[in-house]
Amino acid sequence: MPDVAEIDAAEPGASLWRDAWLRLRKNRLAVFGGVALIIITLFCLVGPWLSRYTYEEQDFAQYAKPPSALHWFGTDKLGRDQMTRIMHGGRISLGVGICATLVSLTIGVLYGALAGFLGGKTDAAMMRIVDILYALPFTVFVILLMVVFGRNIVLLFVAIGAVEWLTMARIVRGQVQSLRKQEFIEAALSLGLSQRRIILRHMIPNVLGPVAVYTTLTIPAVMLLEAFLSFLGLGVQPPMSSWGTMIKDGAELMEEFPWLLMIPAAFFSLTLFSLNFLGDGLRDALDVRTSKD
């Protein structure tokens, strides 16, 4: 008689995710990155409600003043409070980063998984399309979009997401292809499981590791793209601002009013560093090879 009670008393196992989490926690840089990101995000999200100023309100007594008790991060040349503007800019920059990454994640994972799983001619055709899209010059593509649809933030998400998913699709396809040769997929086929179940239960959980890593590395790439577009004047419109536009404006005035460049640049760099540290940490933590020893 099997002892069912033993199952209820079974010791819980350590999933690879839990293992990875334990390893990640030991990685000081990654922890620093994670904590810094949480603080920055909270600062940008909650900050504007606590601030005495709005991002477009001008203080006519304070044009381009360095940090002071009144304006902690100083004011810009129109007398706007820079701290409030950084909070708002952060919402845009982080928002673009996260949304565009989500767009690219969704398209990329589905497209890549499908191509990798179906294989053969379908796969070849799908990947040639990716190659062609890769070859399109990005800036021209964005300018075209702007010309046709006018400038708006949503379009910015779409444009960036539409470019970033290509790499994601390639990564996922490669992963799925190598998974398909694994014996546990063969075992699942031989059990007669449905294709849907094989993809959802056996394939996707096993590609999530590299996907998670690549996602944390995509967000900074997207934020840089946004900054680059804003720098070219193709990004968000005044009086709204993103960190990219603030850096651009600050750069024009950096000799007279250095804080207008340095403070947004510091926020931007800190965020990028944090994301990269976190991504590196995740990669090490999820690497199964290091978990075997």
Partner: peptide, 11 residues
């Protein structure tokens, strides 16, 4: 032993 059913293969 059925005690191990909640564990993962790498264990």
């Amino acid at each position: 032993s059925p005690r191990f059913v909640k564990k993962y293969p790498h264990e």
